[in-house]
């Protein structure tokens, strides 16, 4: 019966059954288990516009280069406040339609950055539109493809009031006299990207943690000795996407910091307030989000000092205590 050398039937049946058994054990049952996970209380279902954005994300295969998973190791801390949980994917990873299954959002390669909380890192739509039209408008070194087919070229007089015009700099335009208008697809995709944030945990859920790195712990020990973190590095990862590495900003979208009066003012109060609370006072520029939750006093002080001492700016350094004072003041105002 089990003479595999001579009995082709038992050879095929045994290899089929053992393989199926192992597959059920290692794939199907765990898959069923993972599917049973419930969403967090603070999560909401995707709106229909977010879903159509997700479908564009899928059909352009953004997951070929972008992951959406914060691993539970400390190097991934830059992509989210906490490691991703199975629950985080409850709404985003449902079957798309009859033809397409649940999108493979976790991804396997980071040719581009992780997008788990891109909605928090880059909350303004202006940045996203420019970046989608041609990533090199906002990130010079980027190798991401542009998606001009999600936009339309129009003459100025053809544009309706309810349409979104994108302030593309002249040198990125094929036809210098035309304006770039976002199609519904681009708008949906940006709305989806803006919705990408990590849901906050409620008390029922245990706080997940990063597996700490020994090296990182030493680093925090040294920063406790009143020396500030690396401002240039923080600026690059937090601010440069809009204000650019050279501090010159982007005309029509993001104001320059080089030579800015607010940045170099003797009194840094307004600058620190803008970083903490955000800014939307000037209609010619996009909205700036507040960073009070994302950055610590030390980190803000380091960024401020970098901005006040780079690109020809010369102004006095600030201390983390100054930031703390202003933060406390804002908190009392809000109460």
């Amino acid at each position: 019966m089990f003479n595999f050398h001579k009995n082709h039937r038992s050879l095929v049946i045994v290899s089929l059954l053992v393989f199926m058994g192992l597959s059920i054990l290692i794939a199907i049952v765990p898959a069923y288990q993972m599917q049973e996970t419930q969403p967090l209380a603070s999560m909401q279902a995707l709106t229909s516009q977010e879903i159509s954005g997700l479908k564009i994300y899928t059909s352009e295969n953004c997951m070929a280069c972008h992951t959406q998973q914060v691993r539970n190791i400390e190097m991934d801390n830059v992509w989210g406040e906490r490691p991703s949980l199975a629950s985080d994917y409850y709404y985003s990873k449902m079957r798309l339609d009859l033809w397409r299954q649940s999108p493979s959002l976790l991804g396997s390669e980071r040719t581009g950055p992780d997008l788990t909380s891109i909605g928090k890192r880059q909350p303004g739509p202006e940045w996203h539109f420019l970046h989608l039209y041609n990533p090199r408008i906002v990130v010079v070194e980027s190798i991401m493809p542009g998606y001009p087919w999600l936009f339309e070229e129009k003459n100025e007089n053809e544009i309706h009031d309810n349409e979104v015009t994108i302030p593309v700099p002249k040198k990125f335009l094929k036809n210098k006299n035309k304006k770039i208008v976002a199609t519904q697809k681009a708008i949906d995709l940006v709305i989806y990207l803006q919705s990408l944030k990590q849901a906050s945990l409620t008390q029922e859920n245990p706080e997940p943690f990063f597996i700490p790195s020994i090296k990182k712990k030493e680093a925090t020990n040294t920063s406790a000795n009143s020396s500030l973190p690396d401002g240039a590095r923080l600026y690059m990862s937090t601010c440069a996407a809009c204000h650019q590495a050279d501090g010159k900003g982007l005309a029509g979208a993001f104001p320059p910091l080089a030579g800015s009066k607010i940045v170099t003012d003797e009194n840094p109060e307004l600058l620190i307030k803008i970083i903490l609370q955000g800014y939307d006072a000037r209609s010619e520029y996009g909205l700036m989000p507040g960073f009070a939750e994302q950055l610590s006093d030390e980190e803000i002080a380091a960024i401020v000092n970098h901005e006040r001492s780079s690109w020809g700016n010369k102004a006095e350094a600030v201390k983390s205590e100054d930031v703390k004072e202003i933060r406390d003041y804002i908190n009392t105002l809000n109460q």
Binding site: I26, A27, R95
Partner: peptide, 23 residues
Amino acid sequence: VLVIIGYLPGYQDGLGETVIQGY
């Protein structure tokens, strides 16, 4: 068997899809 397991729906929502994807 693999193609059938990879494409059948029913256990592929949420991270179920990810388990199957790795497999």
